[in-house]
Design a protein around this nucleic acid. Structure first.
Lengths: 285, 285
DNA sequence: GCCAATTACGAGCTGCGTAAAAATG
DNA sequence: CATTTTTACGCAGCTCGTAATTGGC
């Protein structure tokens, strides 16, 4: 069995290329490294180094061993944080999301769930690793995570509406399309995940004024720019319903409706009624 | 940094479920394990165990940590053999194959290549790991290995012929089909890899007498049963050409021709002219 | 003569075993 | 009373640092 510290020394040497520098970065003395590398060679029963009296360098095998050792050390480090994360999850439900919609709804449960919701949105490509490394127990996404180790259950739809000045000629429509919104300027909350790409792509010639949460409610109250909401409770500070000077009109394009999924590892046990409760409380429009 | 022996102890405990048994299997004393597990807990800064005065068991986190540790230890063990293999490959070209055809041809090179050819055929599903673990430097297959880390180069075709009694009514055909061979009994060398499945599947109602190399040449010489050869030099002991009492007839079905590939890691440097030499010397039919 | 690797030697740490204690059933 | 875990204590081995040695540019 090979002690880790020898692998550590090998990896560092492969980087630093001299025993002196290796000793330096590991905060030990040269002789220590000399002996360590000698020992590693006898343990692996392989020649890792070429030597000349005051010179030493890795053989091909040595390079290979160092590269393999590095992988192992990285996994070691991973193990430590994964175990820590796992332990944390045992006491507190960690919730992530790639889309802001479910946040408010989940916050209303967070006390009886003893849950903590990530303040930042996750990137799509990090969802699986976030679950597998036990950073989050469950991640809400607008797509079905396809991985043999995770369960993805459909929760409900999130449907986009635009809140438009009541005196606009479109204000009495029952629904509206992205095309019909062309050329307008919108106030948009900055951290809206995939919605951002969507509206930029689908609404031609539109301008978007991205705002933080605080500035947003101010702007909405004191301007006539249209802004977006969905059937899910908004995050905007102190803004519950569409103010009186706006009319909320659902957007009829199919892309304006996203399917929201809850994704969690097959091996993790979520609070039994979480999914059911979410589905029950899910706002219909 | 976590010493390996502590992970080893944890993994063993997760299996044995008692410190006494763990100590036993690791050939140390109980107190040693007690201290080890205490130390591991402080190093990971996580509660791995529940304790009662004379009882101890893993928490959920402990179970998880043990499972992760096991993976790590397995990789440790892998590292050792991979480095050994890699080192061996530096001096000797290791050659594997899933199909016997290329063997004789390669054996004729083996002295100037300083090569060693696996005596056993590889299983298809082990080809990639055989390469990645540096057991073999190059593997010959009858299919193109599709893996981002390996190069697969086409070498040539191996074409099946049947050697048939010269007095059979079919003996003067230029070619023959599997269908036309239906119902016959064949002498077949036992270790022919994918050819075995092929002939069993394609020749209806046929019987196959599988023989080792020694018995084979005897049987061929003293019987009139048909047997198979290909354009590649045969392995059969002391049998160079079709004996006079048989006629060699190529099989015209498309499945009777296999494409042979040489597969090797993108990171490994094969002897420069090996591939070229093989292609040059490859028998045409 | 300076720099890097190696060897020699002594010291301190650490993991181990023995012995003993505590608790459970 | 047997079994299991834990604590106490002393020893042995191992890794480290200091100091000295060797060889190269």
């Amino acid at each position: 069995m090979i002690p880790v510290y020898l692998l550590q020394e090998l990896v560092t040497f492969a980087d630093k290329r001299t025993l002196a520098a290796t000793a330096d970065t590991l905060h030990v003395t040269q002789p220590s490294i000399t002996r360590g590398m000698q020992k590693l060679e006898t343990l692996l029963d392989v020649q890792l180094f070429e030597r000349q009296p005051n010179k030493i360098w890795l053989t091909k095998t040595g390079e290979y061993a160092a590269q393999q050792a590095k992988q192992l050390l990285d996994l070691q480090a991973d193990l430590q944080v994964k175990v820590k994360n796992f332990d944390h999850q045992q006491r507190q439900l960690m919730i992530g999301m790639t889309i802001p919609g479910p946040r408010k709804l989940l916050q209303s449960y967070s006390s009886w769930l003893n849950a903590e919701i990530d303040s930042q949105l996750l990137d799509n490509k990090n969802v699986v690793s976030t679950l597998k490394d036990h950073v989050d127990s469950v991640v809400f996404t607008n797509f079905k995570v396809l991985d043999p180790a995770v369960t993805a259950v459909f929760i409900g739809h999130e449907n986009l509406s635009v809140n438009i000045d009541q005196f606009t000629f479109q204000a009495n429509q029952k629904t509206i399309t992205f095309q019909e919104l062309r050329g307008r300027t919108f106030i948009v909350y900055s951290d809206i995940g995939p919605w951002r790409d969507l509206i930029q792509r689908e609404i031609p010639d539109a301008k978007f004024m991205y705002q933080s949460s605080d500035a947003l409610s101010e702007l909405i109250a004191h301007s006539h720019y249209p802004y977006f909401t969905t059937n899910l409770p908004t995050r905007i500070n102190g803004l519950k319903e569409a103010p009186r000077n706006r009319v909320r009109i659902p957007i009829s394009d199919s892309q304006a409706s996203m399917s929201i999924y809850a994704n969690y590892l097959k091996t993790t046990q979520l609070p039994a009624n979480l999914i059911a409760t979410l589905k029950r409380d899910w706002p219909q429009n």
